[in-house]
């Protein structure tokens, strides 16, 4: 199994506080993984925060329990991977296609931005959990 050099996990109510908590986790993760280049830290952080924000903004509860946000991120020698989950959530009904935005639109750029920042983006749904799996192959140098 490929060695995990650093990792962070978070789970909590899908609310504004979770965005800041996840961002703080990412900042501290990079302190444990200083060999990851600035450009990779910057792009991956942006992609993870975009995904988490999307859940906080749009995920709807599937039943009585409120939606929770989860994040599991690992740093491997040749891979950054984040699993960003919405627990107790309905399946997202909107198509997973980035919308084309007019210049003055104030929303709707998140998915296109995530796709530009990561190497792969996949979606999984199991029980009442939606998980977006983001990977990035870091640069070496």
């Amino acid at each position: 199994m490929t060695e995990v050099l650093a990792s962070r996990s978070f789970r909590g109510p899908a609310a504004d506080e979770a965005i800041e908590a996840v961002h703080n986790d990412l900042d501290s993760l990079w302190l444990d993984a200083p060999f990851v280049q600035d450009i990779d830290q910057m792009t991956f952080t942006t992609a993870v925060i975009e995904s988490a924000s999307n859940i906080v903004q749009h995920a709807e509860p599937a039943g009585q329990e409120p939606v929770e946000l989860g994040m599991d991120i690992i740093v491997q020698p040749a891979l950054l991977q984040a699993r960003v989950s919405a627990y107790h959530a309905k399946s997202p009904y909107e198509p997973m296609e980035p919308a084309t935005q007019s210049e003055d639109a104030e929303s709707g750029r998140g998915l296109a931005l995530i796709q530009a920042l990561v190497t792969t983006l996949t979606f999984e749904r199991q029980d009442s959990t939606n998980t977006w799996v983001l990977t990035r192959s870091p640069q070496h140098g």
């Binding site: 925060i49 903004q57 639109a105 929303s107 931005l113």
Partner: peptide, 10 residues
Amino acid sequence: AFMDSSGLGA
């Protein structure tokens, strides 16, 4: 230090 698409929208 950081801006996402929500910040850009603002």
